[in-house]
Amino acid sequence: MKKIFNSFNKNGHKIEKTPYLYLSPTLILMAVLLIIPIFMILRYSFFDNVIINKNPVFVGFQNYINVLTDPDFIVAAKNTLFFVSVSVIAHLVIGLFFAMLLNTDYLGEKTKGIFRVIYALPWMFTASVIAILWKMMLNPHGIINYLLQVGNLASTNIAWLSSRSFALMAVTLINIWAGYPFYMISILAGLQGISGDLYEAAAIDGATPVKQFFYITLPQLKPILISLLTLDFVWTIQQFALIWLTTGGGPINATETFSTYIYKQAFSRYQYSQASASAGIVLFICTILAIFYARQQKART
């Protein structure tokens, strides 16, 4: 086996073909099912009236210019920036905090087990259900307003999702709720991989728990955290169902993001070319991020 696949490079260094062999299932899948459609979308973005017209016309970067000069797109960009940055940071902080709490040595396994399940609850529901549930709770006559009034924290029924000033925050909150368990579970898994010896050594040196967190836990988790942040950024930037089913991008355009903008372009205005161009822009942003990620990976190994 070994000899068939192994070939040595000039320096007599390690094997060359093997990694590709290990990667082949992934690469074949992605090449066929993702690269082809993505290529088609990028092609659409340079034509006019694709899909609905049998003979689209090549228009160069016109669609990109149209999108980038559309004031609605600029608003969507601002909202997306807020939505993504607040979501990603909150996911990380909450996920890390809960994971640390759940990893404590002070509690028995049974207790921790129950809490782990409770904390992972939001993960178990599909986006449309999460949207409906929160829409119910944030309704002016919903349970949240009720609890706020019972607790004397509010005097009127606040229309969270249809208020220009609250809607974006409300939608972001829903997204935070829905997404943190992903961090928590991943970080919990990562915490198991940190050798206990490190903490023992630190304890002998008299390091406080806070110091241990910053000098052992965080650095050890860094590779996992960076992967999580990168992926979460890419996913959050295209979060659609939660926003669409709660506010539809409104009121007015207070919660319009890239994804709702693209959806309206494609399925409401039937401007697939512009939708493709907008998707191309999102792809561009995420690719830059991915390049940083890959650089970082390289620097570490």
């Binding site: 990667l23 992934t26 690469l27 992605m30 993702l34 690269i35 459609p37 993505i38 979308i41 990168t230 992926l231 890419v234 996913w235 930037i237 295209q238 659609f240 890239f258 994804s259 693209i262 959806y263 494609a266 399925f267 939708a275 493709s276 907008s278 998707a279 999102v282 792809l283 942003i285 995420c286 690719t287 991020l289 991915a290 390049i291 990620y293 890959a294 650089r295 990976q297 390289k298």
Partner: peptide, 17 residues
């Protein structure tokens, strides 16, 4: 590096499109 980049960025296309 390219493969690493690709695996992440290919997900960046919104599923709707």
């Amino acid at each position: 590096g390219i493969l690493n980049t690709m695996i992440i960025s290919v997900q960046a296309v919104p599923p709707i499109t």
